[in-house]
Design a protein around this nucleic acid. Structure first.
Lengths: 242, 242
DNA sequence: CCTTGCAGGATTGTTGAACAAATCTCTAGT
DNA sequence: ACTAGAGATTTGTTCAACAATCCTGCAAGG
């Protein structure tokens, strides 16, 4: 068996066929990165749920890479927070709990609020063009909401926050944010009601964007602080109702 | 084998946690991690200066591990920021510049100041015993200064700040700090005048400690903010005079 | 009923060799 | 002095095999 999943064994796992198709499609870059790409998508799409174990032997056959290369891919994803190693036991998709939510949101608040606040001190002022990616993310979220694709709303929301952090032009902030976003994606997968979780923040993202556009950074920072407190609470409640 | 313990529930839990910690410590022994430990010390001690290249063939002989395991160790250290990969050219000790100093200190300020400020909201109040590691670091720095061992002063200073961040009980903050500290160590190695760099902060660390002891967290946070601004400036000036 | 000890089977950790691909070095020629 | 290019060196990747560890199931004992 490739994956030990809580789900029932409906013959061969459906996601394996999707993986095989991805392998055939991607030809660029190194084998390790290609394997990591496929696994990353499987995890962020939820095909590999938190707690799932990834077996080396079967994955080498599906991904058509050697064990060393597969382990290299595992390391790349471990660095991103999408996998965890347990010595002599294997790699697993992390199972995050309420304490992780609190820890992650503590970081989100201090970092994101500081980024927005810091925009006021920029010397040249932030060019309006820098906000365009944020607008794209907002529109993507609104379109996904109209179509009822709530997981896609969550994805667009995470992209919005990643772009927001990007305004600080800090390589280290970007890297930290990348990991936080990956962990938030894992958290979203244990939530049964994505609509209730994501819907309120479509409008709040837009309001935040408008405050940034108006260069009202103080108000934007204050709003964002409360926004993140509310978001944390919603996630914790969804956890309890799980 | 098992020694009878007081039937107190709390005591037994604590004892078991201690055992679990010991087991985890013994378990932390893969060949790759042992090799990484040796290399980490060589880098932080300055034996491998910034810009140095690490040859795979030589190191496999010295460390007595295979190339695959050595490359695994390289990846662990890359994740900590102590090494960088250049495609088809090898691994090198990073050479950080002024922009890295600015980036690192931006993060240090927002994170460390927030940790200190957050101590005021703790429920229950921070136990005085939690400050003991900080006191040890201060005394180590003062002893090293009397002996004229300025690099050791820098090491004790970094440990002080790591312990300070540790007061927040945040696993993610600890990990981020570990990387920032590693990068600061690299920066210290390109400084020709360690005394001028480190000496002022021995007294400032002690004053910060006394403010924490007095639970005057607001003043401590304000002092720390200015402290880090001054430290950044000192590092940038040392860079220019290099 | 619960715990303990012990096989054996399965999985991960590590190694060495081999080859491909890129870089570096040194010589030859202009 | 400069460039082109062949050869040597180093890194990137794969494979097969062995060693070390963990998991499973079962039987013995309290």
């Amino acid at each position: 068996m490739v994956i030990s999943q809580p789900a029932e064994d409906d013959g061969r796992q459906a996601w394996l066929r999707g993986v095989a198709a991805d392998v055939a499609r991607l030809d660029r870059s190194s084998s390790a990165e290609r394997a990591a790409d496929v696994l990353r998508r499987s995890i962020t799409d939820g095909a590999l749920p938190p707690g799932a174990q990834l077996s080396e032997i079967e994955l080498t056959e599906v991904l058509e890479v050697s064990r060393n290369t597969l382990r290299e891919a595992f390391r790349l994803l471990t660095h991103e927070g999408l996998l965890v190693y347990k010595l002599h036991r294997g790699v697993f998709v992390p199972e995050l709990d309420e304490r992780d939510v609190v820890d992650i949101y503590r970081l989100r608040r201090v970092l994101e609020v500081d980024v927005v606040r810091g925009l006021a001190d920029r010397v040249p002022e932030l060019p309006a063009s820098r906000l365009e990616p944020l607008q794209d993310d907002i529109e993507a979220a609104e379109a996904a909401a109209l179509a009822g694709r709530w997981p896609a709303v969550g994805t667009a929301d995470l992209r919005f926050h990643r772009h927001l952090i990007g305004l600080a032009d800090s390589a280290r902030l970007d890297e930290i944010t990348g990991r936080l976003v990956a962990e938030l994606r894992l958290l979203f997968h244990v939530i049964a009601t994505p609509r209730e979780l994501h819907e309120p923040y479509i409008a709040r993202n837009r309001r935040l964007f408008e405050l940034l556009e108006a260069r009202n950074y103080q108000q934007a920072a204050d709003d964002l602080h409360q926004y993140l407190l509310d978001s944390e609470r919603g996630l914790l409640e969804a956890f309890k109702a799980r």
